[in-house]
């Protein structure tokens, strides 16, 4: 990976993290843990992989992203705002009355959001339908599907994975955000998903397992999915929930956090200090 590109994407990830915290600071609370764990993958996707045009969010030939763990919306919104899909200042309207930025992704509200998600598991099927549609249309667009490891409790995820492999959706890339935690605690304590990498591979996906908070590893894993072929791709992202803010990483419960304005400010300062 080119060093300049790596530096640019690492900075983009940092800016997304700042954008996530700006949104939550304005509202006082939010799904901070799962937004920060997927941030590095989103930085690589929007910063180097996805064929998108902020001026034409509905461009039919664009690559699409389905964030099936819809509560990570704030991370997607930050990436989109930084790309110019809508004004950065709008991030401060997260979950305010009448906002275009609800907790969970809504394709009818936010420019650049490709699919509505929130009821876990459903985004997996939606992404399969989109990838299938792109294939039937003869377009070379890729569809990126972000699923959480907690979300993998949902049976619909596995129905969708069966469909993707059976219909040979080589234009589908599953990014499995294995941050090890869900709302009530650790995934291994609540409903142990065991070896998700082996499971996804057994479902017929071309699978790699990497450090999902390492820009270079994410980049390399995504680059190889450009080849297409008859098998859908899976990238198991081993991540840290709350990545980038030590206090959030270490918090026992960090799925959704409500902290004081001073606390959000302190965390924001720790990130902005890294920009220079």
């Amino acid at each position: 990976m080119d060093a300049t590109l790596k530096k640019r994407l690492e900075r983009f990830a940092l800016e997304i993290r700042i954008g996530v915290l700006e949104q939550m600071k304005a509202r006082g609370f939010g799904h901070v843990g799962g937004s920060l764990s997927i941030t590095d993958a989103l930085a690589v996707l929007y910063g180097s992989q996805m064929r998108v045009d902020p001026k034409r969010p509905d461009w039919a030939e664009r690559d699409k992203l389905v964030c099936s763990k819809g509560h990570a919306g704030p991370a997607v919104y930050a990436a989109l705002a930084l790309q110019g899909f809508f004004p950065y200042e709008e991030l401060k309207t997260l979950n305010q009355p009448g906002t275009n930025l609800p907790s969970h992704c809504d394709r009818n509200k936010t420019p650049g959001v490709d699919m509505t998600t929130g009821s876990l598991g459903q985004g997996a099927s939606l992404a399969c339908g989109m990838a299938f549609g792109e294939k039937l249309r003869g377009r070379d667009a890729r569809v990126f599907l972000v699923v959480g490891d907690g979300e993998a409790n949902e049976g619909q995820v596995w129905e969708a994975l069966m469909f993707a492999a059976a219909k040979k959706l080589g234009n589908l890339v599953l990014l499995l955000d294995v941050n090890g935690k869900q709302l009530d605690g650790c995934t291994k304590d609540i409903l142990d998903t065991l070896d998700l990498s082996a499971k996804v591979a057994a479902f017929g996906f071309d699978t790699v397992s990497i450090d999902g908070n390492d820009i270079e590893q994410v980049y390399n894993a995504l680059e190889r999915t450009r080849n297409g072929g008859d098998k859908p791709y899976a990238i198991v992202l081993n991540t840290i929930k709350g990545k980038g803010i030590a206090a959030v990483e270490n918090a026992k419960s960090n799925h959704s956090m409500a902290v004081s304005s001073d606390q959000w400010n302190e965390w924001l300062l720790s990130l902005t200090a890294q920009l220079d």
């Binding site: 939606l126 399969c128 989109m130 299938f132 619909q156 969708a160």
Partner: peptide, 26 residues
């Protein structure tokens, strides 16, 4: 098979796939 799609016994997934197809203009 590109006009009549058998999704197997997975109705929830079938609805989602249909919706994804609708999003791509079908």
């Amino acid at each position: 098979p590109e006009r009549g799609v058998n999704c197997g016994i997975s109705e929830s997934n079938m609805i989602g796939v249909a919706c994804g197809l609708a999003a791509t203009g079908f």
